[in-house]
């Protein structure tokens, strides 16, 4: 089988398209690269969707945590504390068994016990918690003058938020938020361990990396391939978020624009 044929057969295997039978003997590098790459589709799906939805919830949480009303502030603070204060790994397990228990009572929860939705919900809440704290920190450090200027123009409520507070908040929070995004994508690998079943062997990148490591007893090929994919993904995210960062700060002189600095974190 040439490498191109392997690509055609396995490139979309993680979506259930193409050859279903995994290679069992004579593993080639090409097979490993293609199949682990095929699994990456799931990692990107989890990361991208959770990040997109989490962004809106995080903004809401940050505003609620900064609110004067105790009924808004307390729940938001607790939400952020719960998701930042406990390991994502335990959250995954807890959510999985919670969904299993709920499924027995209400059949509507049955899709939640599969990885594509259940794990996504956990990642969504988790990233919302972390990003909410980042946004809250940025909200606290919005220059007083900006808000006073908005007041002087007669803006208030939603208009002031939309035109003045929100853009400044994003601008201040963006470097930290970029790190959070990179980190979220990296923690999508935990989905594999969390007990959420991958339907019909349609696993993520780590699923295939582990498969090859188990079959060949040689971790030195599949895991570096996996790491290589994640480095590429990190570079892509940095480029995208860097472009957004430039746009957010386009009104500032060049030397005063904050630079994105990748600060790797380990685990969550």
């Amino acid at each position: 089988m040439t490498c191109w044929e392997t690509f055609l057969a396995y490139a979309l295997r993680s979506q259930g398209i193409g050859e279903h039978l995994l290679p069992r003997t004579d593993f080639t590098i090409c097979q490993q690269v293609v199949l682990i790459g095929s699994g990456m589709i799931w990692n990107i799906y989890f990361g991208a969707v959770a990040l997109f939805l989490g962004f809106f919830l995080a903004t809401a949480l940050a505003v609620a945590k900064g609110s004067r009303h105790i009924w808004l502030r307390k729940p938001a603070s607790w939400f952020i504390f719960v998701f930042r204060g406990s390991p994502l790994f335990v959250q995954f397990f807890f959510a999985y068994f919670l969904f299993l228990a709920l499924k027995n009572q209400y059949p509507i929860f049955s899709p939640f016990s599969a990885a594509w939705l259940g794990a996504l919900v956990v990642l969504f809440f988790n990233t919302a918690g972390y990003a909410g704290e980042i946004f809250y920190g940025a909200l606290q450090s919005i220059p007083k003058g900006d808000v006073e200027a908005a007041d002087a123009y007669g803006m208030s409520g939603w208009r002031r938020f939309r035109r003045v507070i929100w853009p400044t908040l994003l601008r201040l929070a963006w470097p930290a938020y970029t790190n959070e995004a990179i980190f979220l994508f990296q923690s999508t690998t935990l989905v594999f361990f969390s007990g959420f079943p991958a339907a019909g062997q349609m696993g993520d990148a780590l699923y295939y990396a582990k498969y090859f490591a188990d079959k060949t007893f040689n971790p030195f090929v599949p895991y570096p391939i996996l790491a290589g994919y994640f480095i590429l993904l990190t570079l892509a995210i940095t480029a995208l978020f860097g472009a957004i960062n430039t746009r957010l700060n386009r009104h500032l002189p060049k030397d005063r624009r904050p630079r994105l600095r990748f600060r790797p974190q380990l685990l969550r």
Partner: peptide, 18 residues
């Protein structure tokens, strides 16, 4: 199946610890 309770306990353990 009580796993959900066990993991709830675990979650609370970590939260208290933090």
């Amino acid at each position: 199946d009580w796993r959900v309770w066990y993991f709830a306990g675990l979650l609370i353990f970590y939260l208290l610890f933090t």
